[in-house]
Amino acid sequence: MNIILLATAIAQAAAPAPSPVEQARAIVGDAPTTTQTLVLSDVPKPTGPSRVLFNGRDLSGWQPWLGYPDPSVTYRDKPGATAIGRSRSTAGDFAVRAIDGKLALWVKGETWGALVHDADLRDYHLRLEYRWGDQRWAPRAGQPPNNGLLYHTHGTPGAVFGTWQPSVEFEIMTGSTGMAVAVGRDVRIRTAAALDPSLISPPVRYRMGGKPVEIVNGSLIWNVENARDAERPAGQWNVLDLYVLGDRAVHVVNGVPVMLVEGLATVGAGGVRSPLTHGHVQLQSEGAETWFRSVTVEPIDRLPTVVAR
């Protein structure tokens, strides 16, 4: 190696790694996110009868799965533990209990996992209500409460970090409800984003007309933040509407569209890409006590229109 090449190699080795903002800027460009108000219109009418996924009495139709006894090992390459799965009773993790004068689906949140519904769904509008409970659990006791509505669920229980099935996530987290996340390394999600340096990582937020990006678990862009925070204050019920048609979806929080995704897909051996157009739904357990009620789904043949104002 000549002296010039050696000096260059030394300089490159000594140079600090680019920050998440610098890396994101290389992908989405330099223009930062500005306030954008999205409005839902031309909402599709159901093409068939509505179906109740939570009957308001018991957990009929829902299958539990639990990850590791210590959730802090969940994201390790070698967790050094075996997932609980369905090897013990989950009555203390998921149950139907009374709150605000009605029975609701209760998720304790201490042990991470999910309830997975039996129905294989496609082309639908799903609506549910949720609110946070009071309990927070390690390792996220001091963090914003976190949960999720996972859809187009497929594959094997526990295939993702021993805890969840591969899917697309409609994030439920204070400040980030509606965020899109790829759950599983085989899942791909396309959306549009702009730089938002106020976010930690990745510093990108959904923006209609923004730079096309692909969300890939394990990459810099493993999620894209919602267009805006539309969650109600703690202690109040929130309404989520998920509109799904084939490999496209719209995430709506309390009537406000906050995320549009498309090109939902899985990538198999040899990089072969297959559209992801149907699957089950999961309600996560991820560190925060959460209540769910009024979970219904109805068939649709088109998505609502979303406009920016």
Results as ranks from 00 to 15, higher is better:
194 A>I: 01
183 V>G: 04
194 A>E: 07
247 D>Q: 07
166 P>I: 10
188 R>D: 11
237 W>Q: 08
232 R>P: 04
240 L>M: 13
149 L>T: 03
189 I>M: 02
150 L>K: 15
167 S>K: 10
174 T>F: 04
155 G>N: 05
147 N>R: 02
194 A>V: 07
146 N>S: 14
150 L>D: 15
221 I>D: 00
199 L>Q: 13
197 P>M: 09
186 D>G: 13
178 G>D: 12
147 N>E: 12
204 V>I: 08
238 N>M: 03
260 L>A: 05
141 A>H: 14
130 Y>K: 00
193 A>Q: 06
256 V>S: 06
195 L>T: 01
180 A>N: 05
258 V>E: 02
206 Y>I: 02
181 V>P: 01
153 T>I: 09
206 Y>R: 03
149 L>D: 10
217 N>P: 00
145 P>G: 09
237 W>E: 08
135 Q>K: 14
183 V>P: 06
230 A>S: 09
234 A>R: 14
177 T>R: 01
176 S>P: 02
176 S>D: 15
236 Q>N: 09
220 L>Q: 11
178 G>L: 09
199 L>H: 08
143 Q>E: 15
218 G>D: 03
230 A>D: 08
206 Y>K: 02
197 P>K: 12
144 P>K: 07
195 L>R: 03
226 N>E: 06
241 D>E: 13
193 A>I: 05
215 I>D: 01
143 Q>N: 12
133 G>Y: 14
171 E>G: 01
257 P>G: 03
218 G>A: 06
243 Y>W: 15
146 N>F: 10
239 V>A: 02
259 M>D: 03
229 D>F: 11
148 G>Q: 12
236 Q>R: 07
201 S>G: 02
196 D>C: 04
139 P>L: 11
177 T>V: 02
167 S>I: 06
166 P>K: 11
218 G>P: 03
241 D>I: 00
238 N>Y: 10
249 A>E: 13
151 Y>D: 08
237 W>H: 12
151 Y>H: 05
217 N>F: 04
214 E>H: 07
173 M>H: 09
244 V>F: 00
153 T>N: 13
135 Q>P: 00
205 R>K: 10
234 A>T: 15
181 V>L: 07
253 V>F: 15
215 I>N: 01
154 H>C: 09
235 G>N: 08
202 P>K: 09
163 T>S: 14
149 L>A: 04
145 P>F: 10
251 H>A: 00
237 W>I: 13
137 W>Y: 15
260 L>K: 07
163 T>K: 14
154 H>E: 10
244 V>W: 00
233 P>L: 04
241 D>W: 15
259 M>V: 00
189 I>L: 00
216 V>Y: 06
253 V>A: 08
209 G>Y: 05
226 N>P: 01
138 A>Q: 14
163 T>P: 12
205 R>D: 04
166 P>F: 08
155 G>T: 05
214 E>V: 12
214 E>D: 04
144 P>M: 11
176 S>Q: 11
140 R>G: 05
185 R>P: 02
201 S>C: 04
222 W>L: 06
185 R>H: 12
146 N>A: 11
259 M>E: 12
163 T>V: 08
182 A>T: 07
258 V>R: 01
224 V>H: 00
215 I>E: 03
172 I>M: 13
160 V>I: 14
212 P>D: 11
135 Q>D: 10
254 N>H: 11
260 L>D: 06
190 R>N: 10
226 N>I: 00
203 P>V: 03
226 N>T: 02
215 I>Y: 00
208 M>W: 01
138 A>P: 14
